[in-house]
Design a protein around this nucleic acid. Structure first.
Ligand SMILES: [Mn+2]
Ligand SMILES: [Mn+2]
Ligand SMILES: [Mn+2]
Ligand SMILES: [Mn+2]
Lengths: 218, 218
DNA sequence: TAAAATAGTTAGGTTAGTCTAACAAATATT
DNA sequence: AATATTTGTTAGACTAACCTAACTATTTTA
């Protein structure tokens, strides 16, 4: 039995350690900050998760997920993204509203529910933020993505995903007329602060470098 | 903030005290048995619920829900029954599988989710067991129901709901070819033990009085 | 109405998940 | 290398939700 809280720790670890980015482990303080709890709390929890063989870690050492822990994290992420897709496509939730509710729904325990939800949604491959949905076997398709920052002046690209899925970022994106699959033309880059002038649906706007870093395109 | 556990206590109290049956309050042991916890645990919880003004009770006295407590219980029941309907109608869950998962889903907190789910299901009035679904205002339609036991010999009736929604009962019903809206003809009642011979889809079977008491018909 | 049975309460304990405050280890800086 | 900073651990406390064992109050029944 893995509790909801434990699942949230596993998921956090999975997100903090992304092999493809070369980050293979995490620290106590880092995890604590990510989960908005105190390091002492994380320390206690790590002992429990180690006992259950979900993480591997030694006193003062770095934290990594075991195979088992990783598999469980991926299953939770699969549920999270399927629910987000459901909320967005079937229940008319907006881009920025899905995450919070999915944070709760991802912990519902029912094998049949996940399988049927997946089928009901026609086995979607990405969630409303463009993130890949692991399949029933726990396989997560890695999608090659570059950010808006890398796009050359004059070129047009298409938004495939976003990095930050906070409501504040998403609401800003909506205001600019930007959503999944939106065509974005990069007009000019200002070397001074890295901000970029873009054109979306014949409307020009200038966005900050920070914004551009959070937009994945192809 | 009403916790999941607290919600389960409120729901239990709502089900144990049905004004229409003249049962206006409940006891500690009764609640404990219903929830499969010990009386001491219920006693602790009652103090908390009283503090939150969700139940009204005095030491050694009977327990009743306050207006607030009742409203909250009805909201949870609304969610439970909407989710059961969703699972049954959209995700191909069977009659006997919906309850357990709904027991988890009923605690998800999101006003928009409930509203949209209701709309998505086209504002259903009854759940897959024939129980009425409270509307958005918390109004619960009372459905006049008699049981199979009351039906006269020779008459035909239609199943509108069931009392016991345990998997064992439901699976038995399925085996007999009985579901929501099934036509049932009462052929003969054996006075010896109250068992009844019925005809369903041209197939005759004999069911116990206990079974008949759990079947609501019109 | 006294004894027996049932119902309800209290005291003291446990586990999960959180905290603060004090401390120890590891790493970075001068 | 010594010191300062950052990172991680421990001890001790708290709350929610549960338990057992012992007790008390209420209700039933002989
Ligand atoms: Mn999300
Ligand atoms: Mn979560
Ligand atoms: Mn149910
Ligand atoms: Mn429940």
């Amino acid at each position: 039995m893995v509790s909801q809280t434990e699942e949230n720790y596993l998921k956090a670890l999975f997100h903090l350690t992304n092999e493809t980015i070369g980050k293979i482990d995490a620290g106590t303080n880092e995890l604590a900050a990510f989960l908005s709890v105190k390091p002492a709390t994380v320390n206690d929890m790590l002992k429990k998760l180690k006992e259950k063989e979900l993480v591997s870690y030694e006193k003062y050492g770095k934290i990594t997920l075991t195979q088992q822990g990783k598999a469980h994290a991926v299953e939770v992420i699969r549920k999270h993204r399927l629910w987000e897709t459901f909320l967005y496509e079937k229940l008319a939730f907006s881009w920025d509203e899905v995450h919070e509710v999915a944070e709760q729904l991802e912990h519902i325990r029912s094998k049949k529910l996940v399988e049927q939800l997946d089928r009901f949604l026609n086995f979607p491959e990405v969630d409303p933020h463009g993130d890949p949905i692991p399949n029933a076997k726990g396989q997560l398709k890695f999608i090659q993505r570059s950010t808006l920052v890398q796009v050359e002046e004059g070129k047009t690209c298409q938004l495939v995903a976003i990095k930050d899925s906070s409501a504040s970022f998403l609401q800003y994106a909506v205001q600019l007329g930007i959503g999944l699959s939106t065509q974005i033309k990069v007009l000019h880059r200002f070397d001074f602060d890295g901000s970029i002038e873009i054109e979306v649906n014949n409307k020009r706007s200038t966005v900050s470098q920070k914004f551009a870093e959070n937009v994945y395109v192809k």
